[in-house]
Design a protein around this nucleic acid. Structure first.
Length: 564
RNA sequence: ACGCCCGUAGCUCAGUGGAUAGAGCAGCGGUUUCCUAAACCGCGUGUCGGAGGUUCGAUUCCUCUCGGGCGUACCA
């Protein structure tokens, strides 16, 4: 905890809390419901401004309990509340029984003072109460380059982690390295073949090999560095060497590319370490001890169908080796044992079949499955020149993360992925993403930030101090100014909601909406003008907007330029 | 066959147990002696895929159904 910034409710939250209590008290005072019957009072910001600044549907919720029609109930609640007004300027009953509250606008400008205190911390809440959360994402096999799907997973995972942190969770970002299975053997054979090709030797390519250009390049590099020395080795020795060489370099490249993409992990967790420590074997033994395994046809099976899986799964094959699921069980068991209250796994849709399996395994081990959430990111289709770009695993042809960063840029790529719901099937339009025009939404938000800074530069030239001036705030009287203030006040709650719903794309939407308000305001009202007090007030307001844009863009990993 | 995701305006996508379902793009028409026009303002008759059900109220929840994507190994 860092003192004042976290934990304190901001102005809007205080108002809402106070109002909720007043409403609840009024319901009881009017004899409409007892304390026990009282539903939770819901207060929301109506879409339509003519419906007030805050509204509650409590009267409708009470219809059954009080056995009266909602409008009648609303009347009685309002009757009780009239003695207790405060910051509420006006109350109206509308529609089927909504109670709409209109806020005294002058009270909202206080938010700018809070923001001025909190600066980069504005938006933080203690919603998560410091709960430990492990977020595993990307976790691509170290067998080649990261592609389009990983780019989406990386962006969503990273933004989600930022959101969770801002909402007061204690987040660990983890990448699970599948450095022990069959696919690594495949990588080894593929790299060996490319190495031999680079030496000009006859080299049949393995059936299920990795055909990407990255392995070709790595094979050439290996040939340059080692010459034909490896050819003199025993096969086992050579494979061990190539395997390690490939793993090291491919993983390094993945780290480097993710770094360029502004994604950093706290932890790189090796599958091999689970084998080395005996954790895999231990997990099998634990499941057996719990009576959740059985032998059949020479294999060891997990009784996963008793825990919601379609069928039972093999843990140890006839030949004594593990299936891929077994080390994964050890891995997730390890996550639980590290004491995380919440475990979030972000997977691509092509692996979603794995979810019931892993949940079943954890349930069989006696863990609380509800602590573990799987966030599935849906497929990305890439369009270029109006046509679908085909990917091919067989030929290794695929658009990589590096391609996207080079052709589209990190800001636009991250913004596009971050602004879509994880479970929407995404059409990624390269032409639109690259375009430097108003078609590209990332510029819209960045431009709002740059515009404000441009105003600040002008203001400074004219001798204004670019800082919040508490004395001037009463000059903010225009409708769009109130809209902006209200939007700014909602920011912390928006982040908290995004965290609770594991919905990082809400942040991008929020920033877009805020930018709309800003651009509209900018076009309608001049910041710098004759009236100095008003000018100072508007500078104060824009400082708040710039701060939230900056904080929000930082959260989605997009730059906030001061000039464009 | 079964499981998961999606189906909302011409296109790309938001959204929600509530009031008249929204935004961008595309299209049409306006705005610049004025802090950046990458902007703003105006113009939308949508079976919220379809049918039932729960509810005072369903696009939202449940069931069924149609269409698309993905997945269902002693591969990973």
């Amino acid at each position: 905890m860092d003192g004042g910034a976290r934990g304190d409710m901001n102005t809007l939250e205080q108002m809402k809390e106070e109002l909720k209590q007043n409403i609840g008290a009024a319901v009881i005072a009017a004899g409409l419901a007892s304390q026990e019957e009282l539903p939770e009072v819901m207060l929301e910001v109506p879409r339509d401004k003519s419906h007030g600044d805050l509204a509650t549907n409590i009267a409708m919720q009470l219809a059954r309990i009080a056995k009266k029609n909602p409008r009648q109930i609303a009347e009685e609640i309002v009757e009780e509340m009239n003695r207790n007004k405060g910051f509420i300027k006006e109350v109206q009953i509308a529609g089927p029984g909504f109670i709409n509250f209109f806020i005294d606008r002058s009270s909202l400008s206080k938010i700018l003072l809070e923001m001025d205190q909190q600066k980069d911390d504005y938006g933080r809440t203690d919603t998560g109460a410091g709960e430990k959360v492990l977020v595993e994402f990307v976790s691509a096999n170290p067998t080649g380059s990261l592609h389009l799907g990983h780019a989406r997973g990386a962006a969503i995972g990273d933004v989600l982690c930022n959101v969770l942190e801002t909402a007061g969770y204690d987040v660990t970002r983890e990448y699970y390295i599948n450095d022990a299975g069959n696919q690594i053997h495949n990588m080894t054979l593929s790299l060996e073949a490319r190495y031999r090709e680079a030496l000009g030797l006859e080299a049949p390519f393995p059936e299920d090999g990795y055909r990407g250009p990255d392995i070709v390049r790595l094979g050439e590099k290996l040939a340059r560095e080692e010459g034909d020395r490896l050819e003199q080795m025993e096969e086992a020795e050579r494979h061990a060497f190539i395997r390690q060489y490939g793993l090291t370099h491919l993983l390094e490249k993945i780290k480097e590319d993710l770094g360029d993409y502004r994604v950093k992990f706290d932890s790189w967790f090796s599958e091999q370490s689970l084998h080395d420590s005996g954790a895999v074997q231990e997990s099998v033994e634990e499941l057996t001890k719990r009576g959740q395994t059985y032998e059949k046809e020479g294999a060891l099976w997990l009784n996963s169908s008793s825990f919601g899986d379609d069928k039972d799964r093999v843990l140890v094959k006839q030949d004594g080796s593990y299936t891929y699921i077994t080390p994964d069980i050890a891995y997730h068991r390890n996550k639980y044992n590290r004491g995380y209250g919440r475990i979030v796994n972000i997977f691509g849709a092509d692996h979603h079949g794995y979810v019931p399996r892993m949940k079943a395994a954890m349930a069989a081990l006696g863990y609380d499955v509800d602590q573990m959430t799987f966030l599935i990111t849906q497929m990305v289709k890439l369009y270029q020149g109006g046509e679908l770009v085909k990917m091919s695993k067989r030929t290794g042809k695929a658009i990589t993360l590096v391609d996207l960063m080079e052709e589209v840029g990190v800001d636009a790529t991250r913004y596009i992925f971050a602004s879509r719901s994880p479970d929407s099937h995404l059409d990624f339009d390269m032409d639109l993403a690259v375009s430097q025009s108003n078609e590209n939404p990332v510029f819209y938000v960045q431009y709002a930030h740059a515009r404000i800074n441009s105003v600040f530069r002008q203001a400074e030239e004219r001798g204004y101090a670019v800082q919040v001036d508490p004395e001037s705030l009463s000059a903010l009287q225009e409708e769009p100014e109130f809209d902006l203030l209200q939007k700014l006040a909602e920011f912390p709650e928006e982040i908290a909601t995004a965290a609770r719903q594991l919905a990082p794309h809400r942040v991008a939407r929020y920033l877009y909406d805020l930018s709309t308000l800003l651009h509209s305001y900018y076009n309608a009202h001049r910041v710098i003008q004759e009236d100095e007090k008003l000018t100072r007030a508007r500078i104060s307001l824009l400082l708040g907007v710039a701060q939230v844009l900056k904080n929000g863009l930082r959260m989605i990993g997009v730059s906030a330029p001061e000039k464009m």
